[in-house]
């Protein structure tokens, strides 16, 4: 055993730089990784705003409604019409009431495309209001500056 380690002919690779690099990479990926389950969709081009700073913590029990520039709504990854939103919200509402929560405590996140019609955004808000939701969050992409 002792002979083997002292054998000058055996080539020993110095692992230290490689391990250093690998740990650096791991730390980088760990920090960059995002565990939040933010609903994002490539079909939506959010409007930019300098004030849309990322929120510190995730919104509690949000309902995300995404409005495309064609006037249709993406709800839970599914493309639905503006008229169908009411039915889906009714279901959300009954789930909330079953869980002992009032709909007015939930936040509806509206991710509307920058080219969508404002009237359609307001229609969505109105449908939500009729179902008892009253907290809204209009989402925008953070614009880092001029």
């Amino acid at each position: 055993m002792a002979k083997k380690t002292s054998d000058p002919s055996s080539t020993e690779i110095d692992m230290t730089p490689m391990i250093d690099m690998t740990f650096q990479l791991i730390t980088f990926f760990m920090f960059v990784m995002n565990f939040s389950e933010a609903e994002q969709d490539d079909r939506i081009q959010l409007p930019m705003s300098q004030l849309a700073k990322p929120v510190d913590g995730p919104v509690e029990k949000p309902i995300t409604l995404q409005l495309t520039n064609k006037g249709s709504v993406i709800y839970a990854g599914e493309l639905i019409g503006l008229r169908d939103v009411s039915g889906y919200l009714e279901r959300e509402k009954s789930v909330m009431i079953d869980a002992g929560k009032e709909p007015n405590t939930a936040t509806v996140i509206v991710r509307a495309d920058g080219a969508a019609k404002t009237g359609e955004v307001q229609d969505i808000i109105k449908i939500c209001q009729e179902k008892g939701f009253e907290k809204f969050a209009l989402r925008a992409k953070y614009d880092e500056g001029r």
């Binding site: 849309a52 969050a137 989402r139």
Partner: peptide
């Protein structure tokens, strides 16, 4: 293993923020 896990699960998320609006009917 860890490195490949973090690399595969990496999702580049654009920073987004909200404007809160309270509008009861």
């Amino acid at each position: 293993q860890l490195m490949s896990f973090f690399m595969c699960t990496l999702k580049i998320v654009a920073p987004e923020g909200d404007f809160d609006i309270r509008m009861p009917l």
